[in-house]
Write a protein that binds this DNA or RNA. Structure first.
Lengths: 146, 146
DNA sequence: TGTGATGTAAAATTTAGAATTACATCTTCG
DNA sequence: CGAAGATGTAATTCTAAATTTTACATCACA
């Protein structure tokens, strides 16, 4: 029960800013048109990305730009910025187990330990993909779509 | 938005069956008491595990048993059995992107390609953990809890 | 100082997950 | 045979989480 589409929307926004940010001012309004979701969601996402140092948004006047070089931005950072505990809550654990049963009393801890490895593997996997990779992929898909 | 607690409940059931299945008949009623969730959910989960060849449930008389050796059952198999497309839908993709925008038109495919790698990594990670590992961990936690 | 932006809180809506109800079916035992 | 104790599953209801919307405060520049 966990990684929502916020992460995908964030990537969409970053690709868009990268493509068009030099030609025009990219506002949350514009991004909301391209992504098809509410401007408020965009603002929340940009706000999170800003706090993580991934984008800069000048106050008052608006218009987002990407801060670090694309190779240095990983999917992990994006995901982490937008949904801080998506990864730690990757696999849901039932909280209703009976304390009267030895299995019920301890299953939570057992699962937590086992899942931690998986979560670390997932984090590593996300760290290996950079925004640069995504942008390259975007251009490849774009070229092929003609 | 994705891996539900069904997977955890399934593991709970399997550990329980492994611990007590030799002494008594483990019914869905009993498992529902230990897990704290509805007998129907347990039956659905056992039914999925049965189809995947992980447990056997004699018709009519009831009482679940584990089929293959514990080392041969991976978390991947369990997860797969219980929620066939949890992994392929690990990270949500927004479907509302505008077709009028080049980014919007192609972002779905771009994200799909990028996420596929992540999904494969996750699957590999889940394959590396066996039910035997979980049972060992359970006994370790049990010993430590005294 | 008015306009076009962003930043957020709070409420409403939608959707997915989980629980419940209901009933069909199966096997063994009295 | 037929009642009892199980599972199998469809259909419905309930609940919690995600998403969207509304509303309004704030900021910079012309």
């Amino acid at each position: 029960m966990q990684i929502s589409k916020k992460c995908s929307i964030a990537i969409h926004c970053l690709v868009f800013i990268n493509e068009y940010g030099r030609q025009r001012k990219v506002t949350s309004e514009l991004l909301s048109l391209s992504t098809g979701c509410n401007p408020v969601i965009i603002r929340n996402i940009l706000s999170s990305l800003k706090k993580a140092g991934i984008v800069a948004v000048p106050p008052g006047t608006g218009g987002a730009t990407i801060e670090p070089p694309l190779e240095e931005i990983s999917l992990y950072q994006i995901c982490r910025a937008v949904e801080p505990d998506a990864i730690s809550k990757l696999i849901g654990i039932h909280s209703s187990a009976s304390l009267l049963c030895p299995v019920g009393r301890n299953i939570g801890r057992v699962l937590g330990n086992a899942y931690q490895t998986v979560q670390e593997d997932l984090a590593d996997s996300l760290k290996r993909i950079s925004l640069q990779n995504i942008v390259d992929e975007y251009h490849a898909v774009l070229a092929q779509a003609e």
